[in-house]
Amino acid sequence: MSKQSQTPKAAPAPSRSMLLDWLAIQRNRITILMILAGMAMVLPLVANNYVLEILTNAWFYVVLCLGLNIVVGYAGLLDLGYAAFFAVGAYTTGILTSEFGVNFWLTIPVAVVASMITGVIIGGPTLRLRSDYLAIVTLGFGEIVRICARNLEITGGASGLIGIERPSLFGLHLNQINHFYYVFLALAILACFISYRLQHSRLGRAWQYVREDEDAAEAMGIGRVAIKLYAYVIGAIFGGVAGCFFAAKMTAISPETFMFQQSVLILVGVVLGGMGKIPGVVIGAFALVLFPEVFRGIGSMRMLVFAVVMLVIILYRPEGIWPARRT
């Protein structure tokens, strides 16, 4: 790293004070993160059940939005059927625990494999096509999954599955809202961590190359179909795992949870906060959940407001709420 000290001819030289500033910002950032994490950890001690319920839901959406962010934000693909993966996970857990009495924790690897397979089935053939075809195919696919859930016997038809067993962790039966608060907080932190590591890796860079210029990326030896499929499948796993825990928390799932609106809602979270930026996506997910709680009584207007916000954001501030890293 000795070469870093060479001073560029025309570029603003990274002087000593700027370097110190940068270090200070990094240190500040870590401090802020620690404070936020600490606050999130102690919250159940002071907050009432209503607040905890909402925040648990918010952490849950953080996981979903970060998963979709890998597809939309990193790889630049529009997926309009993301709720399908969430459904695959939820139904895998639901069916295996309630029909076959499988332990909840054992259903997670099954759900991961199921989401991966679904991701490959839908992504494999369509990722070679134009990106707008992918959008419409995922939309149709999301509907197919919902209609299957609605009409198959094993998924409980229109009324869905009920009485899904709640899991135990180290002998503790998870049945209180503050238990689930911590479970979803842990999942959200894990999702942030994985997203961060992926974004700053060979794979993350490859996604960005393909997003910026597919042809140039191909010419550099990057197989665009394989790289997109990679993003698609990892996004699917995020959705699937979130679905498992969703089923365990709710103990009941029905096909209407996985409607097209759900996919759009998750997309709104990603676009709102800022595609491809982890803090932005987290804020976007929180905005999704908190907004209808803060502005009570908008009820049926909720989706309309989100739609207008998404339109305004994409037209006037396509980088989302969170500021861009570099200009």
């Binding site: 860079r205 910026e212 030896g221």
Partner: peptide, 26 residues
């Protein structure tokens, strides 16, 4: 890759000569 740095641009050429996957990165 216009919005990426010069070094990141050059790193793209090494993609096909390296192997790290998702698990290795995580």
């Amino acid at each position: 890759f216009k919005s990426m740095t010069v070094e990141e641009n050059v790193m793209s050429g090494l993609h096909c000569r390296t192997h790290a996957g998702a698990l290795a990165a995580i």
